[in-house]
Write a protein that binds this DNA or RNA. Structure first.
Lengths: 131, 131
DNA sequence: ATTCTTGCAAACTATTTGCAGAACA
DNA sequence: TGTTCTGCAAATAGTTTGCAAGAAT
């Protein structure tokens, strides 16, 4: 049997922050937010908690080249993102045919056990305005 | 006037390795290859050279989550890859409509200055065979 | 002769891990 | 009470950088 995670103050605090935000944030940013909200949590605990949430499918993670960004998404099924590289604001988008296309290309070349990454980075309206 | 890079033994050696290989390789792997070919080059020089080659558009780079992988591609225009996560063997593929789709989605949401990542990872035939 | 390049060692960044003490069930 | 969780400090891993010595033009 799989053991359920314990209901700790730290886990609740991290979940709370993720619930409040619609933007992709790094573990360090979340750690900082927690401090500001008077809910300090050790950085390693933040990393461990985020990893657990990703594993259980409760949040999405993506690499932006520098670091890993996390966010709680609306939809639970597979999707992609249009992310602001300045503030992390994100829009969930469907990759029309992207999955089939990837599977098709892979099969054509004899590749198996496929995964794919498809993210769009840009500057959102608000960030563009203040520049 | 932009200064051309100097023609050094190290730069030639790195270019040589990249010319020989069709697989995506990490800076450390290339550094190791150089040693094995009796053409030792400092690791930082390898990093600097690869970065310069990426900047000049002579080679492609991609993140695989762990590290940055480099390779000299056939075509010079924008394209995507189907990469073996075990050996780095890669196939260059066109993302049919992917660019327009990305641009369209971005515009629709007011995002500007767009870039996108689209890579497919899998296990190539050869690697799958020996498992 | 001048300027760019190299290589080493040290610095950095993001992330992970060992372990002893604290907290949950 | 027994097991999981936390937090600190230290360890990792990949990559970058300062700087003095070496090489290219």
């Amino acid at each position: 049997m799989t053991t359920l995670p314990r209901n700790t103050r730290q886990r609740r605090a991290v979940a709370e922050i993720l619930a409040r935000t619609t933007e992709f944030s790094s573990a360090q940013q979340i750690h900082e937010q927690l401090r500001r909200h008077g809910q300090a949590v050790g950085l390693s605990t933040v990393y461990r908690t985020l990893q657990a949430l990703v594993d259980s499918g409760e949040i999405d993670a993506l690499h932006d080249g520098e670091e890993i960004l996390y966010r709680r998404c609306e939809v639970s099924h597979h999707h992609h993102h249009l992310v602001c590289r300045h503030c992390g604001a994100a829009v969930e988008v469907e990759g029309p045919g992207a999955e089939q296309w990837a599977a098709c290309v892979a099969e054509e070349h004899g590749y198996v056990d496929i995964t794919h990454t498809l993210e769009i980075f840009g500057t959102c309206r608000d960030c563009a305005a203040q520049m």
